[in-house]
């Protein structure tokens, strides 16, 4: 199975990557603008999910399913990261 055999799918992949790039750009705007720390964490979480999508699309484009393992690893680490951030924020409220 080679990606060059599918004309519709290769066009679809281009559209998908364009949509995801736009989404990534908007998420970066929220990451920079803030205004609070939880907003930025939500933006980071969204960016991690978007990158998982990118890697899955890359796996289709290069026809190598091995890349799926990378997106599983990103899913795991982004979850742990978000939970750690939330714990950190909550500890700040209990001590002061």
């Amino acid at each position: 199975m080679n990606i060059a055999e599918f004309t519709l799918l290769s066009k679809g992949l281009t559209v998908t990557i364009a949509l995801l790039m736009a989404a990534l750009f908007l998420a970066f705007i929220r990451l920079i603008k803030g205004p609070t720390l939880p907003d930025r964490i939500v933006a980071l979480d969204l960016i991690a999910t978007l990158i998982m999508g990118f890697i899955a699309i890359y796996a289709i484009g290069t026809n190598k399913p091995v890349y799926l393992d990378v997106s599983i690893a990103i899913a795991l680490t982004s979850f742990i990261g978000t939970v750690a951030f939330a714990r950190y924020l909550e500890r700040g409220t209990k001590n002061d």
Binding site: V15, T16, L19, L20, A22, A23, L24, F25, L26, A27, I29, R30, V42, A43, L46, T49, L50, G53
Partner: peptide, 12 residues
């Protein structure tokens, strides 16, 4: 991808 873009528009 459209759902993800929707999420990003929502977040902004």
């Amino acid at each position: 991808a459209a759902f993800m873009l929707l999420a990003a528009i929502g977040i902004t």
